[in-house]
Computed example of a mutant assay.
Amino acid sequence: MAENWSGHYKHLNEKTPPAAMLSRALAAFQRENAGNGEKLSLDLGCGNGIDTLAMLQDHWQVTAIDRERQALEAVEKLAEPELRSYLTTRCIDFAEIDILPAYKLVNATFSLPFCPPARFDHLWHIICNAISPGGRFSGQFFGVRDSWSSNPEMTFHTREGVQKLLAGFETEHLEEVEKEGKLISGQPKYWHVFHVVARKI
């Protein structure tokens, strides 16, 4: 399961599109004319920075968190000079976070499953508390039939479990996908993924 992260990042660049769930969330805010309030967002496990860049370009103030310094350096490199004042980076393992400020948008593209089970409920509680009413979560949860599900350091959910996590949210998009596929590196993988956009009530 574990890939070399430098090898992972080399397959991605500024031409890679942002995650579909993030794009849905940003479009929803645009329809609501969300610019009337503070546009504060968190990219949790920001990875290559593509999602962070999309939020910056949509004039969000973004805090990008990742435990890999290389990931944050990629984010800083991608951000246009005129947008860098809107970007804050933190090099930390998000599984160890104990408090977060308020955000209008929390994005976690394929990152939350990498939180160990012993810390997941605590982290999710912190995320839920951080999202302000009317704010959104966008991201993924891995299902129990995912080919990585035997990894005890990762967290997996049933559909019912995901629905319980979203109590207190209006679920705007919940798509369960199971398929044979590949990693970005080209290695084969069986995916069982829940794609989510949810609005805090």
Score class of each variant (00 low, 15 high):
residue 58 D to I: 02
residue 58 D to N: 15
residue 58 D to E: 14
residue 59 H to A: 11
residue 60 W to T: 04
residue 61 Q to A: 10
residue 61 Q to N: 12
residue 61 Q to G: 01
residue 62 V to R: 07
residue 63 T to R: 11
residue 63 T to S: 09
residue 66 D to M: 08
residue 66 D to I: 03
residue 66 D to Q: 07
residue 66 D to V: 02
residue 67 R to F: 11
residue 68 E to D: 15
residue 69 R to Y: 05
residue 71 A to Q: 06
residue 71 A to P: 03
residue 72 L to G: 02
residue 73 E to G: 01
residue 73 E to K: 13
residue 73 E to F: 04
residue 73 E to Y: 06
residue 74 A to S: 11
residue 75 V to A: 05
residue 76 E to K: 12
residue 76 E to P: 00
residue 79 A to V: 03
residue 80 E to V: 00
residue 80 E to F: 09
residue 80 E to Y: 10
residue 81 P to Q: 06
residue 81 P to M: 07
residue 82 E to H: 12
residue 82 E to S: 13
residue 83 L to G: 03
residue 85 S to Y: 14
residue 85 S to W: 12
residue 86 Y to D: 13
residue 86 Y to P: 00
residue 86 Y to C: 08
residue 87 L to F: 09
residue 88 T to H: 11
residue 89 T to L: 05
residue 89 T to W: 04
residue 91 C to P: 07
residue 92 I to M: 12
residue 92 I to D: 07
residue 93 D to I: 01
residue 94 F to Y: 15
residue 95 A to I: 02
residue 96 E to W: 03
residue 96 E to M: 11
residue 98 D to F: 02
residue 98 D to R: 13
residue 98 D to E: 15
residue 99 I to Q: 14
residue 99 I to T: 13
residue 101 P to C: 09
residue 103 Y to D: 05
residue 103 Y to M: 10
residue 103 Y to I: 10
residue 104 K to E: 10
residue 106 V to D: 09
residue 106 V to H: 05
residue 107 N to S: 14
residue 108 A to G: 10
residue 108 A to C: 08
residue 110 F to P: 00
residue 110 F to D: 01
residue 111 S to N: 08
residue 111 S to G: 05
residue 111 S to V: 06
residue 113 P to F: 08
residue 114 F to R: 05
residue 114 F to P: 01
residue 114 F to E: 04
residue 114 F to K: 03
residue 115 C to G: 02
residue 116 P to G: 03
residue 116 P to C: 10
residue 117 P to D: 05
residue 117 P to R: 12
residue 118 A to R: 13
residue 119 R to K: 15
residue 119 R to G: 01
residue 120 F to T: 02
residue 121 D to W: 00
residue 121 D to L: 01
residue 122 H to A: 07
residue 123 L to E: 03
residue 124 W to S: 02
residue 124 W to T: 01
residue 124 W to E: 03
residue 124 W to N: 02
residue 126 I to R: 11
residue 126 I to L: 12
residue 129 N to D: 13
residue 130 A to M: 11
residue 132 S to H: 00
residue 133 P to W: 09
residue 134 G to I: 04
residue 135 G to Q: 09
residue 135 G to K: 07
residue 139 G to E: 06
residue 141 F to K: 04
residue 142 F to A: 11
residue 142 F to Y: 15
residue 143 G to T: 06
residue 144 V to L: 14
residue 145 R to W: 01
residue 147 S to T: 09
residue 147 S to Q: 13
residue 147 S to L: 07
residue 148 W to V: 03
residue 148 W to A: 07
residue 150 S to N: 14
residue 150 S to E: 14
residue 153 E to T: 10
residue 155 T to L: 02
residue 155 T to C: 06
residue 156 F to C: 02
residue 156 F to L: 04
residue 156 F to W: 07
residue 156 F to R: 04
residue 156 F to A: 07
residue 157 H to I: 00
residue 157 H to D: 00
residue 160 E to I: 01
residue 160 E to M: 03
residue 161 G to V: 06
residue 161 G to P: 06
residue 161 G to S: 09
residue 161 G to R: 04
residue 161 G to L: 07
residue 164 K to A: 14
residue 166 L to R: 09
residue 167 A to M: 12
residue 169 F to L: 10
residue 171 T to Q: 02
residue 173 H to M: 11
residue 175 E to F: 10
residue 178 E to D: 01
residue 178 E to S: 08
residue 179 K to R: 14
residue 179 K to M: 12
residue 179 K to W: 00
residue 180 E to Q: 14
residue 182 K to W: 05
residue 182 K to P: 00
residue 182 K to C: 08
residue 182 K to A: 11
residue 183 L to N: 10
residue 183 L to V: 03
residue 184 I to E: 13
residue 185 S to M: 10
